Amino acid sequence: MTNSTRASARGSDKRQRLTAAAARVLHQQGVERTTIADIATAAEVPVGNVYYYFKTKDDLIQAALGEHAGRLAQLTHELDKLPDPIQRLKALVEAWVGQRDVAARYGCPTGTLAVELDKRAEGGLDLEAGRVLRLLLDWAAHQFRELGLPDPDDLALTFVGAYQGMSLLANALRDPEVMTGQGARLTRWLDSLT
């Protein structure tokens, strides 16, 4: 491996660490309370190096949204290996419930970011957050369509809306068991559809 190849790999590693840290810290602290220094510290990257990869805080927010989209793509790719759409949807509910402690503390990573970004005057990052949520809606609609159910887009809205609602309530009440109970209710609803 040449010196330039090693330097490029180190640079790629720093960028990835910054992106993952941005997603995590923005979820935990919110956009307004998070500084570039907070993200640099979480990524274990000197704050001055951040500007080599990301010129502004909005660039870091954009990268965090990309991280959320990537994690969603990875999750749905794994779920797509299950043979049946109902199994895939139930496995997604199970994954959501598995994150109940995080949801109770911070809410849905993308949903809370979308709401916060919508309140900002500048940017357009709120639309980007909406695009990440649209990926989830489209995946869910595809599952309902594969089941041959009528109004798959509306069913996807109901499904994802239930998740957003239970995440919001678990967070507002600081009660992870909201996710457990509502996840079970959502699973029963899925069973009732077929």
Rank of each mutant, 00 (worst) to 15 (best):
V93N: 12
E177L: 11
N171W: 15
A141Q: 02
D126C: 09
E177H: 14
R15W: 08
D58V: 10
M1W: 02
E177W: 10
R100F: 06
I39D: 07
G48I: 06
A40K: 12
T187H: 08
D13A: 15
A172Q: 08
E94P: 00
I61H: 04
R33D: 13
R100G: 08
A21F: 02
R10N: 09
T35P: 10
L89K: 02
A114S: 13
G107T: 02
R10I: 11
R33N: 13
I86P: 00
L82Q: 13
A141S: 09
Y53S: 09
P152D: 12
T41A: 11
K14Q: 15
P150D: 14
W96F: 09
Y52A: 11
A140E: 04
L125R: 02
R15N: 08
A172D: 03
A91W: 08
V160S: 01
L169W: 11
L186R: 03
H27S: 11
A156Q: 05
V102D: 11
P83Y: 11
A20W: 12
W96T: 08
Q16I: 00
G123R: 00
N3W: 06
Q182M: 06
E128Q: 12
Q143N: 03
L60F: 10
D101H: 15
Q28Y: 06
L72H: 03
H142Q: 08
Y51M: 04
L125H: 00
R185Q: 07
F159M: 00
C108E: 07
Y52F: 15
R131F: 10
M179I: 00
A69C: 14
T112F: 10
T34D: 03
G111D: 03
T34A: 11
E116K: 10
D118A: 14
G11I: 01
G148P: 01
S4I: 12
P152M: 14
D80I: 07
K57D: 05
L72T: 03
E128P: 02
Q182I: 02
K81L: 12
G66R: 10
V160K: 05
A43W: 12
W96N: 06
G183K: 04
A172Y: 11
K90N: 10
A184H: 13
Q16P: 00
G48M: 06
T2C: 00
L168P: 06
L157A: 14
D118Y: 04
A64L: 01
L75Q: 09
R185C: 00
A141P: 02
Q62A: 12
Q16H: 08
D118E: 09
L186W: 05
D138W: 04
V97M: 06
G161E: 01
A7E: 13
T112A: 13
E122R: 09
D58A: 15
D38F: 03
R24E: 15
R134T: 09
R188I: 02
L169A: 07
A104C: 01
